[in-house]
Design a protein around this nucleic acid. Structure first.
Lengths: 226, 226
DNA sequence: CTACGACTTGCACAGTGTTCAAGAAAGGAC
DNA sequence: GTCCTTTCTTGAACACTGTGCAAGTCGTAG
């Protein structure tokens, strides 16, 4: 072998690091090669293609989220923890949600999560396909919630790279958005009270939505039981 | 002026058509130019950049979704209709959700929708920031729900373009997913019953989740009223 | 020592978004 | 009519992307 041989794990780790630092569109094979101290094309022997590499990186980060033990907490706190940890994981890796829209991302890491989520909702009292739909509902909400921030992140990173007028372009963009929103009565009112009250923390919005979804699931359970 | 002058509306329409037909990664400026009968670079005079073009196309399709009249239906059916129409719109234009993860997409079209959604949730009884969070919750769910299908669509389109072994690669991919899922007890059980019962229609899953979210919102309303 | 298989490298190609100087066509001013 | 300006289009470039390919390098088994 040559002096040092690349391993798939090394490559995937470097890819995750680069994706976290530069975003999805900041990842390119030459930069990855430079980070690994190898030629860009050396990666291809191990992972086959860029899409495959992203799939591997994407599945890797699923293992970051801990699985709550159903023997010690009830289903609702378990569901809350799983969803919240998923949410912070998606916040840490905004590129995941972007990749989710373009590639089929299903590997052992996601399977591990999905299986446990299913277990939680079965423990709640859902049976058969209902458990699947219940799990899908909260998962879908968490995923959708990460979509907006991912876009903001992507934009900020792209502008941050672009030298001087980054902040100006950013301000232009939001100013334009406000100008549009101000033409609609309710949106304008929301903007005003948000500006006055320093705005609701965006994480509050996540918890509100999550608890609402769980409330809805409990309502369905209560309706099924006499 | 030259014989025929391009208009922004023409360009945006052609872009939407191309995006619908070829997907987000199928859109490129030379193809767009060919469709318009112009040079690829002629577009730049009108829209500035590809990102801007996508933003314009994205905002355009928001106008496809009708706004339910609160004077004739109660808030819950209004919310259901708005969410369902948003869902079918996102199904018709799967590239929108993908773009949502990479670009800040906020224009008059989305503002029109957001404003009405806010109105619906204010009519439900939510006040101030609560209405905002309630609207965001159901919007977020619908958005997240469109993310999986978008990926499947994107993959299918990419493979469909690739000649012969498209179906084979698709089957390989799902087979691998099943193989992984089968290693987890609950996922395996779900696969088996799904195969036996022809699977729950995916649109059932959307309605289940949507009604669950609305149930959760109603629970919150009931808890606030004495 | 030789041969093989595991890896790596540099080169090249096709395709991408975008810039830029140069042009073409219309509409007015005189 | 001529001339100028403004609006729009064009084709040729440039830098960058993912990736295929032939050639290479190296450890190791025989």
């Amino acid at each position: 072998m040559p002096r040092t041989t690349l391993t798939s794990a090394q490559i995937v780790d470097a890819a995750v690091g680069l994706l976290d630092a530069e975003g999805l569109e900041g990842l390119n094979m030459r930069a990855l090669g430079k980070q690994l101290g190898s030629a860009a094309t050396a990666v291809y022997w191990h992972v086959g293609s860029k899409e495959n590499l992203i799939a591997l990186a994407a599945d890797q980060v699923w293992h970051e989220i801990p699985l709550p033990d159903l023997a010690v907490v009830d289903w609702r706190t378990a569901a809350t923890r799983l969803a919240t940890d998923l949410h912070t994981m998606l916040t840490r890796h905004p590129w995941l949600v972007q990749a989710f829209g373009s590639l089929p991302l299903f590997g052992p890491g996601k399977a591990r999560h999905d299986d446990h989520s299913l277990a939680i909702h079965e423990a709640a009292g859902f049976t058969g396909g209902q458990a699947d739909q219940a799990a899908a509902t909260v998962f879908t909400f968490v995923l959708g919630n990460a979509l907006g921030p991912a876009a903001a992140d992507s934009l900020a990173r792209r502008l941050g790279r672009a030298g001087d007028d980054a902040a100006e372009a950013m301000r232009d963009s939001t100013a334009k958005a406000h100008e549009i929103a101000a033409r609609f009565p309710r949106l304008r009112a929301r903007l005003e009270t948000a500006a006055a009250g320093h705005g609701a923390a965006p994480d509050n919005s996540f918890q509100f939505g999550l608890q609402t979804v769980l409330d809805g699931l409990e309502a369905r359970l209560a309706a099924a039981r006499p």
